[in-house]
């Protein structure tokens, strides 16, 4: 039972900001909660640390798999297909694919094409419209039949499920980074990775 005279004290607490959510604990081994870095930023949303971790894990798993070696040698031509963000927060999936692309390219087993797919560079197609232009030296204009079609596609989704503890005091967001590399001819899944990050915190507010 709260007496009226205690209101001022309560108001002081409120003003002091003691109603904010307590810390979020993440299972990402690079997160502040896992490394013990109390100054590290953590939230229910996907952080740059989560993106870096998921990209690293996916690439590492793929490179360790025999399917990442092109039969007969050489490098796979690969394109990024749709990778959707199916979570509770707006998040640019290209921040994930950009890291994956860079790491895979550095392995010297892949060539990424931007001629097609989610990362298509519009200028590649526009360039072909210059073929009849008298303004351009035609020996420097990209000609028909020169683009390399991808052999495999990178696709996937980042999904989340929200659950709450039995007493209703905690909530957990279970993120899954689900990535697949698909062979375009047969449609076979050459490789897939499933990287989970769970985040647990107060159930006081919605987690976005």
């Amino acid at each position: 039972m709260i007496k009226y005279r205690s209101i001022a004290l309560l108001a002081l607490f409120a003003l002091a900001g003691c109603t904010s959510n307590p810390a979020v604990v993440s299972t990402n081994p690079l997160s502040g909660s896992a490394t013990g870095n109390k100054n590290a930023y953590e939230s229910f949303s996907i952080t740059s640390t989560d993106i870096g971790y998921a990209a690293n894990e996916a690439v590492q798993q793929f490179l360790e798999a025999p399917e990442s070696m092109k039969p007969g040698g050489g490098r796979y031509v690969i394109a990024v297909d749709q990778i959707i963000n199916d979570t509770l927060n707006n998040f640019e999936t290209r921040r994930l694919t950009a890291q994956i692309k860079r790491k895979l390219r550095q392995s010297n087993r892949f060539r990424f094409t931007n001629a097609i797919g989610a990362d298509q560079t519009k200028a590649i197609i526009d360039e072909r419209e210059l073929q009849d232009s008298k303004l351009f030296d035609q020996s420097t204009v990209a000609q028909d039949g020169t683009l390399a079609a991808p052999e495999i596609y990178l696709t996937g989704a980042i999904v989340v499920d929200a659950t709450r503890s039995g007493d209703g005091k905690k909530q957990q967001l279970n993120y899954a980074f689900m990535l697949e590399v698909v062979d375009k001819v047969r449609g076979y899944v050459l490789f897939d990775s499933y990287i989970e990050i769970d985040k647990t915190g107060s159930n006081k507010n919605f987690a976005w």
């Binding site: 709260i2 009226y4 209101i7 309560l10 108001a11 607490f13 409120a14 003691c18 109603t19």
Partner: peptide, 9 residues
């Protein structure tokens, strides 16, 4: 929470 109590009272 204190702020909710203050508001209600």
């Amino acid at each position: 929470t204190p702020s909710e109590a203050v508001k209600f009272i």
